[in-house]
């Protein structure tokens, strides 16, 4: 009796091993799909536009669009890894840009610090309501998004806010912007991948209570990550102002949606957790921008572009989401 039991268990285990291998392969495929998508989208649009898309000049233009999204997406990436959400990024960018503009009249380093601090402050407000008052992150950040959008409109009621044009214009070159972006990305990658910071975030996303019982100060982590995300977007405000020169009422508008779409396109699981990879940020942002730019170079109307974007978005989500899990999806 006992013996047959053991044998049967081993058989089951072997079957499990097979199933697991299949699952591993499936998840690997899902993991590289965004990369394949990125390559495919780039090639298709390059061919369709007769090589215009990836022409050196256009690449420069493309890159200048990708910086802000990519930097801001890094902060949101951390938040989403923990299973949280942040819809206030666009307003953070707008407010930080305004602060940057005002302070740029004194000097640039002060302005950068000011922008970062402004972003961090809004992040702290998000974190306070989310962590201390236990309001859903989605609800909190929608409120702050709305609230600070109002403040931005208020500040730009009469005219767009302008910084010191001479100083900011002098910084508008790809080397500066790319350097900053790379520094942000590499730093974030390093901490996410090679220190306990990333592991803790993933653990919180995969099972918050168990993470707390493993000795992680989850509330503190969550609070700090919201501040961090705000600060990172505050830094992105610098690049934003340098690029566009002034802040209007709609500055940063819809950035949060762009980031979310970019991350999802990059293969980011929406509820965070163990399967999150840092590549999601880079691949996703690039894919989003190239898809956009590709549709523009084809000369499509904005509405048609958006239609295609929406369909592509849903297809990608449908392919990359793990439908076999029995988890309840809200």
């Amino acid at each position: 009796m006992a013996n047959t039991d053991v044998i049967k268990n081993d058989e089951v285990l072997a079957a499990e091993e097979k199933a697991l291998k299949r699952a591993v392969i499936a998840s690997r495929v899902r993991a590289i799909l965004p990369v394949i998508g990125l390559v495919a989208v780039s090639l298709i649009f390059n061919i369709l536009s007769n090589g215009k898309l990836l022409a050196p000049m256009n690449i420069k233009l493309l890159m200048s669009q990708v910086y802000v999204t990519m930097i801001a997406a890094t902060g949101v990436f951390f938040i989403m890894t923990m299973g949280g959400l942040d819809f206030s990024q666009g307003s953070i960018l707008g407010i930080a840009s305004i602060v940057f503009c005002y302070l740029s009249r004194f000097n640039i380093p002060l302005a950068i610090i000011g922008g970062v601090l402004a972003g961090a402050c809004i992040g702290a407000i998000n974190g306070y309501f989310y962590v201390k008052r236990k309001v859903k992150s989605f609800v909190v950040t929608i409120c702050t998004m709305f609230l600070f959008r109002g403040v931005i409109e208020f500040a730009t009621t009469n005219a767009p806010v302008q910084g010191d044009i001479v100083k900011t214009m002098s910084l508008d070159n790809n080397v500066v912007k790319m350097t900053i972006t790379l520094i942000v990305l590499l730093t974030a990658f390093f901490f996410f991948r090679f220190t306990k910071f990333g592991r803790y975030l993933k653990a919180i996303g995969a099972g918050e209570k168990a993470a707390a019982f493993s000795g992680i100060e989850t509330d503190k982590m969550k609070f700090m990550v919201y501040i961090l995300a705000g600060a990172i977007t505050g830094l992105a405000a610098f690049i934003n102002v340098v690029k566009v020169g002034s802040v209007t009422a709609s500055s940063g508008n819809q950035l949060e949606t762009q980031i979310m779409i970019a991350l999802v396109l990059g293969g980011m699981p929406i509820s965070g957790g163990a399967k999150v990879k840092f590549e999601n940020v880079v691949v996703g942002s690039l894919l989003y921008i190239i898809l956009n730019a590709g549709l523009v170079t084809l000369g499509l109307t904005p509405a048609l572009q958006q239609l295609i974007e929406g369909i592509v978005f849903l297809i990608v989500v449908a392919i990359t989401s793990d439908r076999n899990s029995v988890q309840i999806v809200k």
Partner: peptide, 14 residues
Amino acid sequence: PTAIQNVVTGVALL
């Protein structure tokens, strides 16, 4: 200014 509506809505909801 009319922009205050967003601020009011946001604060009230929060």
